[in-house]
Design a protein around this nucleic acid. Structure first.
Lengths: 144, 144
DNA sequence: TTCGGTACTTACCAAAAGGTGCATACTTGT
DNA sequence: ACAAGTATGCACCTTTTGGTAAGTACCGAA
């Protein structure tokens, strides 16, 4: 019903093509998205970008609702992907902190426009999602 | 710009928390990512951004390896989210095409840097992923 | 001594996401 | 008549992902 009409952006600017290349990925966009795919990864990047080196526990408390298992897992993947650096201070009560690598920083930069887009259009997105949540729940009852 | 920037530009980490949010989202980035979450959505957006209005069948063939069920489903969600417009020409052999709304176009623009990042770093990403695929399938190594 | 905090690990599960294949209703080409 | 193409819908199933709760090894405080 609600046709989201926006500021008369009549001539949509052209989008450059997504250059396909190396094995496994259809294009750069594909590669990027696989790297940040994970329920909490963007948030992790977000916090590290904002607050710099952060201890595990802090991160854990900052990102609410994440479980240890998944947080650790995603941190490990980010580390394996070279986006995050893990520093073990080898102290007696364990002390480890995580920070962004230069690669991680560059990715964070590339995320800026997405963040801005979301901020700008959050109202619309939010509304639509709320509606979807409604009929989604009624459409299917718990299996069995 | 009064807009909170996602990754702090560089030197200082003074950027405050995520933008105060509407129901459901922790920040703009979160909102954006939920909208493009779906195995083929980014590719759909990119394709439509480049080629303009496209018939269902064409899309289906362009995005290889996607199944009808999922493609339709993601198109419906994109449409519900106001990013894509579905046009049914009501012709006898069905003819429907999909195009980006202005909102969709703006999102596609925001994806450009991600695409660039991926293209630029595809070598690293690709290598790391290949390695992960190897030990992920077999048993896990003792903690190194 | 037991409690709580550190940074994890593991086994087991539930839910979500995606894939397969068949069905539809109608038309054009062979 | 029959296959093929059009844009979908639906039932069923597998894979992927994330969550829960417990355990580990170590230390200091109560």
């Amino acid at each position: 019903m609600s046709e989201p009409t926006f500021p008369p952006t009549q001539t949509p600017p052209p989008v450059q093509s997504c250059t396909p290349t190396l094995p496994g990925f259809t294009c750069g966009l594909d590669a990027t998205l696989r790297v940040i795919a994970g329920k909490w990864k963007p948030l992790i990047l977000y916090f590290l970008a904002q607050d710099g080196p952060t201890r595990y526990g802090e991160l854990r408390r900052a990102i609410r609702d994440v479980s240890d298992k998944v947080l650790i897992q995603q941190l490990k993947e980010l580390e394996a992907d070279g986006l995050v650096k893990r520093t073990d201070h080898k102290e007696v009560p364990p002390r480890v902190d995580y920070s962004l690598t230069p690669l991680g920083h560059s990715l964070a930069q590339a995320l800026v426009p997405l963040c801005a887009w979301g901020t700008e259009h959050m109202a619309e997105v939010s509304r639509v999602f709320a509606e979807r949540a409604t009929w989604t729940r009624r459409g299917r009852q718990p299996t069995v």
